[in-house]
Design a protein around this nucleic acid. Sequence first.
DNA 1: TGTTGTGTACCAATTGAATTAGTACAGTTA
DNA 2: TAACTGTACTAATTCAATTGGTACACAACA
Lengths: 120, 120
Amino acid sequence: MIQLDYKSGQSICEQVVNRFIQLKALGLMKGGDQLPSVRALASQLSVNPNTVQKAYAILENAGIIYSVKGKGSFLSDDERAHDAVRQKAETDFTAAVRTAKSLGLSQEDLVTLVLKEETT
Amino acid sequence: MIQLDYKSGQSICEQVVNRFIQLKALGLMKGGDQLPSVRALASQLSVNPNTVQKAYAILENAGIIYSVKGKGSFLSDDERAHDAVRQKAETDFTAAVRTAKSLGLSQEDLVTLVLKEETT
DNA sequence: TGTTGTGTACCAATTGAATTAGTACAGTTA
DNA sequence: TAACTGTACTAATTCAATTGGTACACAACA
């Protein structure tokens, strides 16, 4: 379910955060689904539990998951949180557009690149 | 000519590198134009000369500038180097497209965002 | 010639973020 | 009670970025 990519340049914490957001966006997880426990996921990824807990804390802070002591962490049903994720994705993508343009790519170039990228 | 943005998340070195690439792409600098000296730019940016020199070394390594001991550093005329910059910009942008899609944005969404971004 | 400005090459030290390691506490479930 | 969950700390480590400093080689110029 979660697979780390050490070549991505992203920190472990970031990757865990983003992966659960993706799983929701892709429909592979739904609101209410339970996440692996902090310790279990840390063990599976061969990573320190603190790192996973930090990722879960970020997700909970953003309203994407909710955690209950003694029970576990669950994917939130709150659509507002997922709207916020979408907002951030748009902002990040817009920044990428600006960067690409500043390096000489035209609007047509960018549209072509978007369309060339297959939707999996 | 060069202005640092500490909120950008980019390192000083990265910002210097990217800024000169931009200046060339935007036509504000041409092949043969002299860059500020390592020490002068470092002083202007209130930054360590080593940091600027590292940026210049990266630019020279990529063929974007060439440096002559005792004379200075100059923007290269080599189009192949600038083609490589374009290649990298395309690769980076494609990665941004994938990320945005994984977070739930559709192809239409992305095209809209590209077109919404004014060309300055 | 000497001086100044240029790029280049080191090295030691510092800073900050990310991660690890370890311990402890609180709540749930069986 | 025992075994699981999340949470909250602190200390140590690692690594990249940056700083501070010194030194050398070359070019331009008075």
